[in-house]
């Protein structure tokens, strides 16, 4: 296929898929009885719910974003420190990995009530839940990066008499950056989900008015389906902004030297 043809298809296919999706949406609605229709509001109703509840949704989004950012940032800092400790020796990794796995395997929905007892509902609990969700992929990927440094480069640093601090700051940490960003991208997709989930289980209207999860509970109790759909889409948008931010940060940090941004076929 010619290049312009391919380019047109690149834009046309998602548009066609979108139109088909809307058609299916309306089709399903058309098959529903009148008293069932409230379960699936039309796209127009969802859009108007956006407009109607925009200030509530914006406020809730900012609250969710705040929880996501605090949890996410804490996960970055603590996972980096822990990854540095884990990279020290296989013995340290063997000692700590089982407990990290245990933490990862425990469903957040079960931990949330415990956290709720330990920390205040609202932002503190939401941030901790986000932290727990983001932490694991970050620490595993960063540790892998720190221990995967090219053996020859380590020899080179030893040969030139580098001390441990120089080896970590000038070699191991920069070499681990691509791994770190892989973990960061996974954590970025989980961050807002964690914050919304945390908000759903441990959110509070006290003080900050709650985030998107808490708002979903309110809309759900009021049977405002269109507003619920609008909340879900706001969450989706928030996640997209979060991931896009991290992808940009990764590109900005790595594009001038890392091969993944310079494939022969790109």
């Amino acid at each position: 296929m010619s290049k312009p043809g391919k380019r047109i298809l690149t834009f046309a296919l998602p548009a066609i898929a979108g139109i088909l999706f809307l058609a299916v949406w309306y089709g399903v609605r058309a098959m529903m009885s009148e008293d069932q229709k409230f379960l699936l509001p039309s796209p127009v109703e969802v859009l108007s719910a956006f407009g109607e509840h925009r200030s509530v949704l914006l406020h809730a989004s900012l609250n969710t974003l705040e929880g996501a950012l605090i949890g996410f940032s804490a996960a970055i800092v603590i996972s980096l420190l822990l990854a540095l400790v884990l990279s020290l020796s296989p013995l340290v990794r063997a000692s700590l990995y089982p407990y990290l796995m245990l933490l990862q395997m425990t469903p957040v929905i079960v931990i949330a009530p415990i956290i709720l007892q330990w920390a205040r509902p609202g932002l503190p609990s939401v941030s901790i839940i986000t932290f727990l969700i983001c932490f694991f992929p970050l620490v595993v990927n960063t540790t892998q990066g720190l221990i995967s440094t090219d053996r020859n480069l380590v020899d080179l640093f030893r040969l030139y008499g580098a001390n441990k601090r120089q080896e970590i700051c000038l070699l191991r940490l920069p070499a681990a950056l691509p791994y770190f960003f892989t973990g960061l991208r996974i954590a970025a997709t989980l961050g807002p989900i964690g914050a919304i989930m945390g908000d759903f289980t441990a959110g509070s209207s006290a003080g900050d008015g709650g985030g998107l999860g808490f708002q979903a509970i309110i809309f759900s109790s009021q049977l405002k389906m269109a507003a619920l759909f609008a909340t879900a889409m706001t969450g989706c948008l928030l996640g997209f902004v979060f991931v896009a931010g991290v992808v940009f940060l990764g590109w900005w940090t790595l594009h001038h030297w890392h091969d993944s941004y310079h494939r022969a076929d790109s």
């Binding site: 090219d150 080179l156 040969l159 000038l170 070699l171 920069p174």
Partner: peptide, 14 residues
């Protein structure tokens, strides 16, 4: 007094 050149250039890509 000693320097080394390896089989790979071992340059820091960043």
């Amino acid at each position: 007094e000693i320097a080394c050149v390896f089989q790979d250039p071992t340059l820091l890509p960043w």
